[in-house]
Each structure stands twice: as C-alpha cells, then as structure tokens.
Simulated scan of single mutants.
Amino acid sequence: MSPASPVQSLARRWKSLGAPTGVENALVFGPQGADLARAVQTALSPGSLTLLHPDPPPPRARFRTDPATLTDLAAVRPGAFDLIVAGGGLEIGGLSQVRSRLAALAELLTEDGVLAAEIQTFAAPGPDEDFDALLFPHLARAGELEDGRAARAPLTAASWTLLLRSAGLHPAALDGVGAQRLPQELGLLHSARLAAYDPVELSTGALRLVARKAGGAA
C-alpha cells in the first residue's frame, strides 16, 4: 500500500478531529484544488461536493466546481452546506478580509454546519524557512515582506480561535502543528520582541481544526 499523500493525511486528520461523514452537501476550497476534493470524498464521503475553483472539474470527477468567491456564494446560497473544508487561504489578507471571509463561511453553513480548516498562523515560516513575518508582523501586515505573494495576516493560534468564535464558529477540536520551530539564534536575537508570546504560540505554525456553527450539536 502506497503511503498517504499530504492532502490525504490532512483529510484523515480532520476526520479524527470530528469532521462529520456522509453529510448531504459539502463545499471545499484551498490551494490543493481537485486533490483536496478527492481526499475529502474518500475520507468524509459527502453526498454532494462543490469545489470553489475557476476551472471546470477534471474528466470523470465526482464533484462540481464553482468559480464564485466565498462572499459572492454566501449572498446567493446562504445555509447551503453541511460541511465546509478549507485547505488554506483563510489567512490571506488583512484582519478585515479575514473577518469577512469567516462571516461568509458562517453564512454558508447550515444551522448545525461544520467547518474543517487548516490555517497558517503567524508562526508558520514562508518559503525557505523565512521567519520574517513572525519577527516583523508590522511589515508583514503592510505587505512589505511577501515579494509579490499574497500577504498572510500575522495572527496567532489564540487569535484565530477568538476570531472564529466572534464569527459564530465554535472550535470543537484543534491540533497545532509546528511547521518549523524558530531557530535558536533568531529567538535570542529577537527575544525582546517575542517576549510577549507564549512559547507554544511560537511553535504552532498551523492549526488543523473542526468548528461548529453556534447552535449546532456539541
């Protein structure tokens, strides 16, 4: 048996955290594209799956695609999905964009709907283990560190849980993944700047979580 791919392992992790199986309608989005859709179908077996993607589905795909943004989709299909799976992208942009994105997710979910997500926190390194966004969050917030890439909101794991709750999405289970610990020499050099953060926050590069819409089953 061949080893599971990263996206397959991610879908299985969401299942172990309590993501529901066999729901009627699921929405999926993330940089993994069709691979994420297939992994979710295998691990969670939704009856119908929609992938947010600008292109038509590949041949023989068992899911449909929709080119809309989350905000646009929420305006025309509120309460349409029992499960939303976010493989990435929630953290892109500033705080107002993040809040709008979470509000759209809550609007799209049914009253007992569930969000399964992977979120890159401010402690996740960039390409080639670049920790500038962690060390200089004010510059990251201004978009001056990304070299043309979409800027990531420099939010801690604790900040994300608060934002989810404020949007009406209550984390039911979460798993912090230390994508890469801050090298010791950088920690010493910038110790004064980093002193305000809990050590766990500094090593939680990604959050894998399952959140339920307020009023849903515990």
Rank of each mutant, 00 (worst) to 15 (best):
E24L: 10
A68E: 04
A211M: 08
S159V: 01
P3L: 15
T204C: 14
E129Q: 14
A157C: 02
P46G: 13
T69Y: 05
P56S: 13
A142F: 10
A43M: 08
R181W: 10
L109S: 05
L164Y: 02
L155M: 14
G178W: 00
S100N: 14
A4H: 02
F122N: 00
G187P: 01
L105F: 02
L188I: 13
A61V: 08
R62H: 12
L10R: 10
R38E: 15
P171S: 03
A157N: 02
T204S: 08
E185I: 12
T110C: 07
A103T: 12
G33R: 15
D147K: 15
E118T: 12
L108H: 07
A142H: 10
A86M: 05
P78E: 09
L27Q: 04
G113P: 01
E144G: 10
V7E: 05
L135I: 13
L155P: 01
Q120W: 02
V177N: 02
L182Q: 05
R149M: 11
L194W: 11
V210M: 07
E185L: 14
L70A: 05
A217N: 09
D175C: 10
R152G: 02
L17D: 05
G215W: 09
G87W: 03
A133H: 09
E107R: 15
R141Y: 09
E24H: 07
H53A: 15
A103N: 07
S2N: 09
R12F: 02
P20R: 13
G126Q: 12
L162T: 13
T71C: 04
A217I: 11
A153C: 15
S5A: 14
R77S: 14
A37T: 08
A173C: 04
P3W: 11
A153P: 00
L194T: 03
A68K: 07
R13N: 10
A34F: 12
P154I: 05
F29E: 00
A150K: 03
D35H: 14
L102F: 09
L95C: 02
P6C: 08
H170P: 00
S48K: 14
L95A: 15
W160C: 05
I84T: 10
Q184W: 13
R38Y: 04
I119E: 00
E201Y: 04
T121L: 04
S159H: 07
V23L: 04
F81S: 08
Q120S: 12
D128M: 04
P127G: 02
P59R: 06
N25E: 14
G113W: 04
G89H: 03
L17K: 09
F131K: 06
R60W: 04
A26T: 06
L169C: 07
E146H: 15
L105I: 15
